[in-house]
Design a protein around this nucleic acid. Sequence first.
DNA 1: AGACTATTGTAGCCTAGGCAACAATTCTCG
DNA 2: CGAGAATTGTTGCCTAGGCTACAATAGTCT
Lengths: 149, 149
Amino acid sequence: MGPDDDEYIGYVLSDVARLMRTVFDRRVRGIGLTRAQWLVLTRLYRRPGASQTELAVMLEIDRASAGRMLDRMEKNGWVERRADSEDRRINRLYLTDEARRAHKEMWAIAEATVDDALAPLSERERDQFTRLAARVKGRLQGLAGSNGS
Amino acid sequence: MGPDDDEYIGYVLSDVARLMRTVFDRRVRGIGLTRAQWLVLTRLYRRPGASQTELAVMLEIDRASAGRMLDRMEKNGWVERRADSEDRRINRLYLTDEARRAHKEMWAIAEATVDDALAPLSERERDQFTRLAARVKGRLQGLAGSNGS
DNA sequence: AGACTATTGTAGCCTAGGCAACAATTCTCG
DNA sequence: CGAGAATTGTTGCCTAGGCTACAATAGTCT
């Protein structure tokens, strides 16, 4: 068993993530938000007034990527950039009312999608799966943190 | 427990996939191939002479995306497009010698990366994890197949 | 104060993927 | 045979992410 095998765990995991994304994206098409943008909402919903850098850290993406995402979302009326009163470098981020409404809708769809995906597992297997995945994630964070050069 | 929770399985799974990708990408930087391009190699290695559409199906990506990927890889000397002798619409794809060499190298790195990621799990847990993930994948393929409109 | 240093957001250039439309070609079936 | 349907690969336009370099601003330390 190696990367040449279709059942290789490395493939399966990335397939699971990709398929989850695909299914979710298809279900929310029509709301006007993409999945990536919805992730922005989930963060700003909990932490209104965050800066762009803070948002990028929360999403674990590049500052530049986050900035461009915000360009799109601002243009489409989901997000507001307000100048910080003390530090002129900083943009404070806030959701529009419409964004807060959409957030709820996407949330429900996300839950339903994950439920559907895990449907073939029993309650107990679901827990197992979640715990195993969390441990793998922890390990990977360690590997990613200590830069792998 | 819902999408608002950081330990939500939906987040964890996409995190695992993303981190695995990040770690792997960092480790192979310098070979001159990206992870996505290496995936192309893995397929053409097993199925030389495939058409672009066949490759796209194997990778489960768009025909257009595959075509552009091949543009880059051809330009960089990893892949050759040869005209099919019977059907003038078709390009048959072949790896260059250099690509076959790089394939081996990336393969080893991929195996090591996955091994590292799964290091915190016991042999038995690894099997469990793999099997559970495969079942979830199967379910998602069902959901993705029957288009979710 | 003034000179470094650090942080913030942006712009440029890159890979990667999706969808829709299109020309070239091939297939099918009347 | 020939007209319409299907397939193949490409192009255009979109989102999304990474890395580097940069100007503006803020912080630090002599």
